[in-house]
Design a protein around this nucleic acid. Structure first.
Ligand SMILES: [Mn+2]
Ligand SMILES: [Mn+2]
Ligand SMILES: [Zn+2]
Ligand SMILES: [Zn+2]
Lengths: 139, 139
DNA sequence: CCGAGGGTTAGACTTAGTCTAAGAACGATG
DNA sequence: CATCGTTCTTAGACTAAGTCTAACCCTCGG
């Protein structure tokens, strides 16, 4: 499939040498709309690739972060999570399930950041917590 | 000193039975303007009270959170931090030092939260990252 | 072919936090 | 006071996320 060729190209464009492990990890973690933790990545990838080690998963995730393909988020205790959506956006944490939901940048307006005295802000986001309202249709 | 009597009263008002350990922990953690982690609390308190155990520090911090005297913040990897300022406010994380700086609620305006579809937001805050600008005077 | 550099690996190690079971302090009651 | 049930504290075992190390395995250029 051309899917994997696309991913290979994408890695190389970011100065990352491809390997079977990196491709398998990228295929999952760069395409998901979830915010998986490292151990989830390991589980998912290990189910498809004969053998991937924990060390490689951590190495690769950190490499992807360093090269700008992923962002690392820390929103709740003991859960470092990876986000393939690197453009600025906000996050909602569902207190019932722990699920993390993306909130588009334009859905909120934050005013006053440039006026904060003594602080050079390089990035910011709104972190929201609460319950997801029950939906009529799950789709 | 009446300081410790005040603290004792404050604990009891929140339904917390006082003890030497709880008073010592409260004296530090409810008065600080920093955002200390559990191990910092243990260090500081152990320096004044003959013996306090790690288990008690964790138990007490969790109790204080449950009773509304403290809030638990998770802003960076591996660092759960406690905040005696329980009113809503925002946080700036200095990327150089890891220091956490309070940003008053009214310093920023966030619009659009009630209009988020499908989300029942119970609380939110803006999390900012960057560098603290060098100040003329440290005070 | 060969060798160097980069990638991967198992497993030891570290660190934050939790759990357990036993002892100490508390506080109501006789 | 003495007793006794409840609450609090404790050391140390345990867990889980993440890091480190040193050996091994590829791959690609010469
Ligand atoms: Mn990390
Ligand atoms: Mn906690
Ligand atoms: Zn996201
Ligand atoms: Zn704060």
């Amino acid at each position: 499939m051309t899917q994997s060729a696309d991913i290979r190209r994408r890695l190389e464009e970011h100065g990352i040498q491809a390997s079977a492990q990196r491709l398998a990890i990228a295929e999952y973690v760069l395409a998901t709309d979830q915010h998986p933790a490292a151990d989830t990545v390991l589980e998912v990838v290990a189910a498809r690739l004969p053998v991937v080690s924990r060390a490689t998963v951590y190495n690769t995730l950190h490499l992807f972060v360093e090269k700008g393909l992923l962002r690392e988020l820390v929103l709740s205790e003991g859960r470092v999570v990876y986000d393939p959506k690197v453009e600025p956006h906000h996050h909602f944490v569902d207190e019932a399930s722990g699920a993390i939901v993306d909130v588009p940048w334009d859905a909120l307006r934050v005013e006053g950041v440039p006026e904060l005295p003594g602080l050079d802000v390089s990035e910011f986001q709104v972190v929201l917590r609460g319950r997801r309202r029950s939906r009529r249709r799950e789709g």
